[in-house]
Amino acid sequence: MTPSLKKGVAYALACSAIAGIGLAATNPYHLQVMTFIGINSLLALGLNLLMGYAGQISLGHAAFYGIGAYTTAILTATYGLSPWLSLPMAVAAAALVAFLVGMPTLKLSGYYLGMGTLGFGMIAFIVFREWDGVTGGASGFVGIPPLAVGPLNLSSGRNYFYLVWGVLLVAILVCRRIIDSRTGRALRAIHDSENAARAVGVGTMHLKLQVFVFSAAVAALAGFLYAHYVSFISPGTFDFLMSVRMVTMVVIGGMASIWGAILGASLLTLLPEWLHAFSDLEMVVYGLIMMGVMIVMPQGLTRGILDLYERARERHER
């Protein structure tokens, strides 16, 4: 099988798997969890391009998620705009902010970049919480309209699940294209050595800014999907912990891997649901599992599972 054919088959399989899950799942709760996995995967996917491939850490990415959500909330609920018009504006708003924030902060690297983006994330959170008149303040923003295409209402569980996973699939395709292009190679080069990348003629500053803006736009898209799904948003969803959770999704799933982003997002979305049984000890068990995964599979779930599979196959062949 040629590689391109193989890829086509993989995408066809992914499509049918999504369709199958959508049809088979009758429990609205399951559909809701799957929808959240899709939204979180989108977040992790965008951040992975920045962190996993270009090696630039962002500890303030929840801000862009929030900007996407709040922009569409304000435009649709306060000003009565159609969500399909507010979508490009929400994405553009996050991209613009990312551009302005990225210009000075991306000159930093390593821990310093982490600190810089952390500060930005906190400022954004405070704006969401304190700008009462516009964002609804700490009590949140109510009454975000659902999405609809003509007569088709997308707000039902199954339709929204299809929408989110359809968007995710397109995002994966776009990311794949970027990663396999010269830009993707240049991003990995920056990750390895910024100086050497400059020596071969990569405009590192320019490229870092581009990928930062792109990942912010993807986060805003996820924020848009989130806001119109739950119809109520509050600043707590976009706080520092959310930024950390996004970073954790990328690291746990496995850096520089598209499957890693999805695996990490799935695990971090499902774990709290499964751990409800532990009630008071929930967060303790959650933390222990995170630690365990990182100790046993330091390169993330994707690499770890692949290693297990390869080892099992070797043993089988022997």
């Binding site: 190679r185 990995r188 080069a189 390895d192 050595s193 100086n195 050497a196």
Partner: peptide, 8 residues
């Protein structure tokens, strides 16, 4: 020091 991109 060559500076090839080692993981690539």
């Amino acid at each position: 020091g060559r500076q090839v991109f080692a993981p690539m």
